[in-house]
């Protein structure tokens, strides 16, 4: 039986761009270039490695997002995923984490899966809660924040480097895993991969396809509300000295003046 892997990816504004909020306090996705979240590249990479080890596997990349989010799917396809699903609906604008997890869970179920692979967090929202939410909604084990992952005989195994301990984890499939940026460099798409990606199928679904009511998602359906966003004042320019042999001492004097020593 083929191992069905679904990789959830997000299209995010480039972190090196000038990110800001739109008038309705949602993340402005128009003025900054978007890309496949770098942290999701690690998820695609691990999915590809797991698929390589399996006798037979098929990788579907899944995203929920606006039209441009297709770029993120293309990138994942060019890395080697087999097909893609794009959930797109005007009513999704402003959907929060809980809403997104609902949409993803329905789409994952519709796709059919043995293993769901996620990145550790998005690079824009940075909440890192989706893998746990998906596991809860799908009713399958959560094997999260892995720096090492493998699948063998229907069992997923991994290493989780926590704050106070390193844990070895194990769960039977189907399961939801998330991988960190310590799991191994993601490959670059090859020229062949980029060409092949153009012919790979990308399916588009809307809320109706997933039997989700529009008031369950979007800004209206959101479980949270942002009431204000203010730009942090730029830090006032500090003193910069060139080391002419006394740099360390000058720094010590500054620290003493600020009462750190």
């Amino acid at each position: 039986m083929s191992l069905r892997i679904v990789v959830c990816v997000k299209y995010v504004p480039d972190a090196t761009g000038d990110r800001h909020f739109a008038e309705d306090l949602t993340v402005d996705r128009d003025d900054v270039d978007g890309l496949l979240s770098e942290l999701d590249e690690y998820a695609v990479e691990q999915a590809l490695q797991i698929a390589d080890e399996a006798d037979d596997a098929e990788i579907t990349v899944l995203t929920v997002g606006p039209e441009d989010a297709k770029d993120a799917l293309r990138k994942a396809l060019s890395m080697g995923a087999d097909k893609a699903v794009h959930v797109e609906d005007d009513d999704l604008h402003g959907t929060d984490a809980l809403g997104t997890s609902l949409v993803l869970a329905k789409a994952i179920e519709k796709t059919g899966y043995d293993l769901v692979v996620c990145g550790m967090a998005s690079t824009d929202g940075t909440m890192g809660v989706l893998p746990a939410m998906l596991s809860e909604r799908l009713g399958v084990p959560q094997v999260s924040l892995l720096s090492e992952v493998s699948v063998e005989d229907g069992t997923v195994k991994g290493r989780r480097d926590g704050d106070t301990a390193t844990e070895r984890l194990e769960a039977r499939l189907p399961a939801v895993v998330s991988v960190t940026d310590q799991s191994g460099e993601a490959r670059y798409p090859s020229f062949k991969g980029i060409m092949a990606a153009k012919k790979k199928p990308v399916e588009s679904w809307d809320l109706e396809d997933l039997e989700i009511e529009s008031d369950e998602v979007g800004l209206e359906g959101a479980w949270t509300a942002v009431d204000g966003a203010t730009e942090r004042p730029a830090r006032t320019a500090g003193t910069i000295v060139k080391d002419e042999g006394e740099g360390g001492k000058q720094l010590a004097a500054f620290l003493a003046e600020r009462k750190f020593i």
């Binding site: 003193t239 060139k242 740099g247 360390g248 020593i261």
Partner: peptide, 22 residues
């Protein structure tokens, strides 16, 4: 751009001197 105090220099010179001074 962020600092209150910055030293442009080789850390292997500046840091040990700072440590000694502290």
């Amino acid at each position: 751009d962020l600092v209150d105090y910055g030293v442009v220099g080789d850390l292997f010179e500046v840091v040990p001197q700072l440590t000694e001074e502290v």
